[in-house]
Design a protein around this nucleic acid. Structure first.
Length: 557
RNA sequence: GCUGCUAUAGUUCAAUGGAUAGAACAAGAGUUUCCUAAACUCUAGAUCUAGGUUCGAUCCCUAGUGGUGGCACCA
C-alpha cells in the first residue's frame, strides 16, 4: 500500500513538472490521522510557489483511488480500506511463527560476537545486559533470513587472569580443592587490589602473567587449567538459563600467537616505540595504541586483530561480522579497524562494531576489582523468587512451577535491558525490575497468556476463529497489528531491539483496552469469530516479538 | 588538557526534520455479580542554555553547561 501511494504521488508530481521532491510516506503518529500520511505538499509547495494546503487539494484530487483527507499545515492522510486490515490479520495467522520474518538477508552469512565474559572473573549483571543485546541482535538478523552464527570470545590469558591466579595462590587454592566460580571472583579482587597497592605483588603478578602465557610452569599450569575449567563450566550454566547457544568459542590464548605473528609480519603498519610495537593512529585523527608490549606479548589489540581471520578460518567466509560490546571500547575499536584496513582490508570492510551503554547500579558503577558486583546468577535467582511469590498469589495452581517463575524473571530482566536505546547507559534499578507491572516483560507475557486463556474459552464455547464476518469498522488494534513486519525490519537495520520492545508494549496495551471493552468468547456475538481471530493474531505477534527479545511466551501464568 | 557518547515529566524510557512531544513507575480519583485486576479508565506533570539552518527543530550545525567513557604497554 505504501509503495502504491508513493508511486501515485510521484506520477502526480511528474504531471506537475516538479522534480527531486524528497517527500515521505509514513505512518502518522496519531491513528486518527489515518494509516499513511505524506508531507509532499509541504515539501513541494516552495518549488511550485503555491500554498501547501491548496497544493494538497490539487494532489488529492488526482489520488481518487485512495480515501484521503487533508490536515494540519497540508499533510495528506490516506485511510486504508477495511479489507487491508482483514487481509493482514489473515496473513499473520497463515504465517504463524514466520509472521514478521523477511528475506532481507537471505543467502548471507552473519557472525555475531557478544557477551565475551572473561574466565576467572565474575559473570555479573553487566554481562547479562550485553548478552541480552547480542542475543536479540542475533535473532533479528536470523529473522531476516541470514545464516547466523553466534560467537563468544573469552579472555583466558592476560593481566586479569594473572591477578586471579595470584589471588588463588594467596588463598591456598589447589587444583584438588573444590573451589567455585565465586572463589575465583574473590581471588581476582584480591589480586587486583594487591597489584595496585603492593609493589612486590605487582612484580609477582607480572611474572605470573608471562608464565601463564608461555605455559612454562607446570604448577601454575595445573592451577590455571582448573580455574579456567571451573569458570567456563559456570558460564555454560548461565547460557543455558538465559537461552543463548553459541556456535563457536574463541579464546585469547589462541588469538595471542596469531596476533603477534600478524603484527610482526606487517612492519610497515606497526612501528617500534619504547620497545613496544604500536599503531600510530594520530595521522588518521585517532590515537596510538600498543599491539605488542615491550616484553613482546600481544595486547588485546593484537589478539582482536587476529580474531577476525580466525573467525573466517573456522566458520568459512562470511558476509558480515558484528561485534557487540560495551561502548567503553569504541575509541579503541576505531584504531583497531584502521590497523585492520592495512592488514586485511576486505575483512575490515565487513566488520561492524556495536557499542552499547554500560550498566550502572543505583549506587554507582560496578567494579569486579573491588568485588562490588552483582553476580548474574544471584540476580536471576532473586527475581525468580519474587516472580514465584507473585504466581502463588495470582495463579495458585502454578505456584510450584519454578521454570515458569524463571521465564517471567528473565522476561522482566531482558525487557528492562532492551526497552531503551542501547547507546545509553542503563541504570539497573532492582526495584523496577522486581515490579511486574506496567511496561514490562511480564506485562507482555501476561497479555499473551491472557489471550491463550480466552481463546481456550472461546473454543469451548464453539467459536471458530475466522476472518469472515468482520465488523464494518476496523478495531484500533488492527491498525497497529499489520505494522509488525515493518517494525522488525526497522529494528534489524538499526540494530535496535528496543523498537520491537516499544511496539509490543503498545500492541499489548491496545489489546488490553480492547479486552476490557469487548467480550471475545461470547457465542451470541456474530463478530466473535473475528474477534478471536484478531486475538490470535495479537498472540502470534507477541510470541514472535518476544522471541526476538529472547523472552519466552508462556501460555499460562 | 584533547576527545567520544549523552542531556525529554519527580523517576525509567519513547518520538526516519512534521500535526496536540508519547508510555510506564511514583502521586491523586475510579473500575471485578462480566473471558486471568501482572489488567482497564480518568487527573496532574517534561524537550539543559544561547545562537544558526529550515515552510517546520527534541532531532541537523556552532558555542557553552552538566553527566559519563576514552587518551601506550589492562581488557
Amino acid at each position: 500500500m505504501k509503495e502504491q501511494i508513493q508511486q501515485k504521488i510521484q506520477t502526480v508530481l511528474d504531471e506537475l513538472g516538479v522534480t527531486d521532491v524528497p517527500f515521505t510516506v509514513e505512518h502518522p503518529a496519531d491513528l486518527s490521522h489515518g494509516d499513511y500520511a505524506s508531507n509532499v505538499a509541504l515539501v513541494a509547495s516552495k518549488q511550485l510557489g503555491k500554498n501547501p494546503r491548496e497544493l494538497a487539494e490539487e494532489i488529492v484530487s488526482k489520488l481518487d483511488e485512495f480515501e484521503t483527507t487533508i490536515a494540519g499545515p497540508g499533510f495528506i492522510n490516506v485511510h486504508a480500506p477495511r479489507s487491508f486490515f482483514v487481509d493482514h490479520v489473515a496473513q499473520s495467522i497463515a504465517a504463524g511463527t514466520n509472521w514478521g520474518k523477511s528475506e532481507l538477508l537471505a543467502g548471507k552469512k552473519y557472525v555475531v560476537e557478544y557477551t565475551d565474559p572473561n574466565p576467572f572473573k565474575e559473570f555479573h549483571v553487566g554481562h547479562l545486559f550485553t548478552n541480552s543485546v547480542g542475543e536479540s541482535v542475533s535473532r533479528l538478523i536470523e529473522f531476516a533470513g541470514a545464516d547466523t552464527k553466534r560467537l563468544c570470545y573469552q579472555g583466558d590469558v592476560g593481566m586479569h587472569v594473572a591477578h586471579a591466579v595470584w589471588g588463588m595462590q594467596q588463598m591456598g587454592l589447589t587444583p584438588e580443592s573444590n573451589f567455585t566460580a565465586g572463589d575465583l571472583g574473590k581471588a581476582y579482587a584480591l589480586g587486583a587490589t594487591a597489584y595496585k597497592e603492593d609493589e612486590r605483588a605487582q612484580t609477582a603478578i607480572k611474572a605470573l602473567n608471562k608464565k601463564i602465557y608461555e605455559r612454562s610452569d607446570e604448577v601454575v599450569n595445573a592451577l590455571y587449567d582448573k580455574g579456567r575449567e571451573v569458570s567456563l563450566a559456570y558460564f555454560e550454566t548461565i547460557y543455558a538459563i538465559v537461552g543463548t547457544h553459541f556456535d563457536e568459542y574463541f579464546f585469547e590464548s589462541e588469538a595471542g600467537p596469531k596476533g603477534k605473528e600478524l603484527v610482526l609480519g606487517n612492519p610497515k603498519v606497526f612501528s617500534d616505540s619504547d620497545g613496544a610495537k604500536v599503531f600510530e593512529g594520530e595521522q588518521y585523527g585517532l590515537h596510538t595504541r600498543v599491539f605488542l608490549n615491550s616484553e613482546g606479548l600481544p595486547t588485546y589489540e593484537a589478539k582482536e586483530l587476529a580474531l577476525a581471520q580466525m573467525k573466517e578460518d573456522r566458520l568459512g567466509v562470511y558476509d558480515h561480522s558484528i561485534i557487540s560490546t560495551s561502548n567503553e571500547i569504541v575509541a579503541y575499536f576505531k584504531v583497531l579497524k584502521k590497523a585492520m584496513s592495512f592488514v586485511y582490508p576486505e575483512l575490515e570492510k565487513k566488520t561492524e562494531h556495536i557499542g552499547h551503554g554500560t550498566v550502572r547500579l543505583t549506587t554507582g558503577k560496578m567494579s569486579s576489582r573491588t568485588g562490588e558486583v552483582i553476580a548474574a546468577i544471584d540476580f536471576i535467582e532473586e527475581i525468580t523468587d519474587t516472580a514465584q511469590e507473585r504466581i502463588a498469589s495470582a495463579t495458585p495452581e502454578l505456584a510450584q512451577d519454578r521454570a515458569l517463575a524463571q521465564q517471567i524473571a528473565l522476561g522482566a530482566i531482558k525487557y528492562a535491558t532492551l526497552k531503551g536505546n542501547m547507546l545509553q547507559d542503563m541504570v539497573f534499578d532492582k526495584e523496577a525490575a522486581l515490579s511486574f507491572e506496567g511496561a514490562s516483560g511480564p506485562y507482555l507475557q501476561y497479555t499473551h497468556a491472557r489471550i491463550c486463556s480466552v481463546l481456550a474459552k472461546a473454543a469451548d464455547a464453539g467459536i471458530v476463529p475466522s476472518t469472515d464476518a468482520a465488523p464494518e469498522e476496523a478495531y484500533a488494534l488492527e491498525k497497529i497489528l499489520y505494522r509488525f513486519p515493518e517494525v522488525v525490519e526497522e529494528a534489524m537495520l538499526h540494530r535496535a531491539p528496543h523498537k520491537v520492545a516499544q511496539y509490543l508494549t503498545e500492541l499489548a496495551g491496545m489489546f488490553n483496552s480492547f479486552y476490557a471493552q469487548e467480550k471475545i468468547a461470547d457465542p451470541s456475538d456474530p463478530h466473535a469469530p473475528y474477534k478471536a481471530r484478531v486475538a490470535q493474531s495479537v498472540a502470534q505477534t507477541l510470541k514472535n516479538g518476544l522471541w526476538l527479545l529472547g523472552i519466552e511466551a508462556p501460555e499460562r501464568m
